[in-house]
Structure formats: C-alpha cells, structure tokens
C-alpha cells in the first residue's frame, strides 16, 4: 500500500531524515520505533505531505511520487493523528470531527461518519457541543483519532496516540484501534512504549538518526540482541 524508498527530509538547513525506507502492506498494522529525535514524527509528516522530500520517493496505492500536497494525500486516503493532537481547541468537539471530513469525497458522508465515530467513542457524543480544549487528554486523543477517521482513510498514521492519556483510557483507545483495524484500515503507529507497541503491531521498523536500521516481526525484534540492547536496556 505504502512504501518509502530512501527518503530524506530537511528542516531548514538541517537534515532530519537521511535514508528512511519502509513498507506497509494493505491490512497490516506496522510500528515505527526509535529514540526521541530519531525522525519518527518527521517520517509521518513526510508521508502525509507536511514536509517536502529532499531525496528519495514514495509509492502509495501503486503511484510513485516525490512528494504531494497534504490535501492530495488526504483525498487519496491517508490520515494523520498528529503528535500533540493539534485539535481546534476553541471549536466544539463536533466541529472538530466535521473538519476531518473536509475533502470533497468525505463531505457527502459526514453524518454516517459521525455516527461511526460516536459508536467507537460514545463519550464524544455526550461531549459533542463542548470545546475540544475542555476535554481530558484521553478524550482529546479520541477526538484526534475520530477527526482522522472522518476522512474515511485507507491508511491511518498514528503519532504517539497514548501520550498524556490516562491508563484506563489507553485500554479503551487500543480496543477502538483494534476495531478500526478489523474494519480494514491499514495502520502505521509511532509509539514510545516498546512493549505496548509490539503487542499491538505485527511488524515494526526501527529508525535511528534519520535512518532505518532494523525491521522485523514483533516477536523477532524482541528476540533480537541489538534491539534489546538499544531499547530495553538488556544486555
């Protein structure tokens, strides 16, 4: 469905990504792991089109390109739940969700999409008239996931969706994400908590200093000596 072929991204004069390659197949749930500053969020931003590619290319749904605009990518079925959520805090929960259906194809199905999301996160239906900024961290994360789903994506990019979320709600969100996966949405997940990530994804890539350095099945990675050393602090 998606493959990144040795992409590079510059932030101003600094190179943030040097050589990131990965592949996500239809129906899969893939993890993207790495330390802080390794380039995970930049990779997500590059996929959705927030950052132009300085080198390399990507293939999505059979079409290879060297960077498209965010609106083209969203229309083509990619959605991002961004780091820090990026909600419209002074707009109602409902208006936040509706904005997620901004692309012309999604606009026709606003009401059905809303019902789907309220079924997934019933609390959002009760709070639909409140300002998004008034919600708890976990509820805001639900709004961010719901907003991404409103565009009816085929590929959902999740950038640290559990940060600032109370433990009880983490479980609820994981259940919801599993449901989304079962409905046929492909996912790419960035997550700090390695065990949580590897219990959720089938495969994962590890990036370090802007380069993919390791990849494999979740179980394989856990058994990999270098991986354990780097991420789990085990010798």
């Amino acid at each position: 469905m998606l493959s990144l072929n040795q992409i590079a991204v510059d932030h101003g004069a600094l190179r943030a990504l040097w050589e990131v390659s990965l592949e996500v197949r239809t129906g899969e749930c893939v993890g993207l792991l790495g330390a802080n500053g390794a380039g995970k969020s930049t990779t997500m931003g590059a996929i959705i089109g927030l950052y132009p590619l300085a080198a390399g290319n990507m293939t999505y749904a059979g079409i290879t390109h060297t960077g498209r605009s965010t609106s083209e990518n969203v229309a083509a079925g990619i959605a991002l739940v961004p780091e820090g959520r990026r909600l419209f805090t002074q707009m109602s929960v409902r208006d936040n969700l509706v904005m997620g259906a901004y692309t012309p194809s999604a606009r026709q199905a606003v009401e059905q999409s809303l019902e789907k999301i309220y079924a997934l996160f019933p609390i959002l239906k009760d709070k639909q008239q409140q300002f998004a900024g008034e919600l708890s961290g976990g509820q805001q994360q639900m709004v961010a996931i719901g907003r991404a789903l409103m565009s009816q994506p085929k590929l959902l990019l999740l950038d640290e969706p559990f940060i600032g979320v109370a433990p009880l709600l983490v479980d609820e969100i994981i259940v919801a994400l599993r449901t989304i996966g079962q409905q046929g949405v492909t996912m790419l997940l960035v997550e700090q908590n390695i065990h949580r990530a590897l219990s959720f994804v089938q495969r994962a890539y590890v990036i370090e200093n802007g380069r993919t350095v390791l990849d494999g099945e979740a179980a394989q990675l856990l058994a990999h000596p270098e991986f354990s050393k780097k991420f789990l602090g085990l010798e």
């Binding site: 609106s71 805090t89 208006d95």
Partner: peptide, 26 residues
C-alpha cells in the same frame, strides 16, 4: 459556523497544521 470555508477559517486560525492534515489547502 455553517459553511466549510468559514469553519476552515476558524480551524486554520486555531491550528494551521491541524487544518492542513484535514485536507485544507493552505
């Protein structure tokens, strides 16, 4: 409040990146 363009204006004002990833052409 009631039009896509108007809502997009409010959204971009509050978080331009958030609006961009909704598909708003900046």
């Amino acid at each position: 409040r009631r039009t896509w363009f108007g809502n997009a204006i409010r959204a971009v004002t509050q978080d331009s990146v958030g609006a961009q990833i909704c598909g708003v052409h900046s």
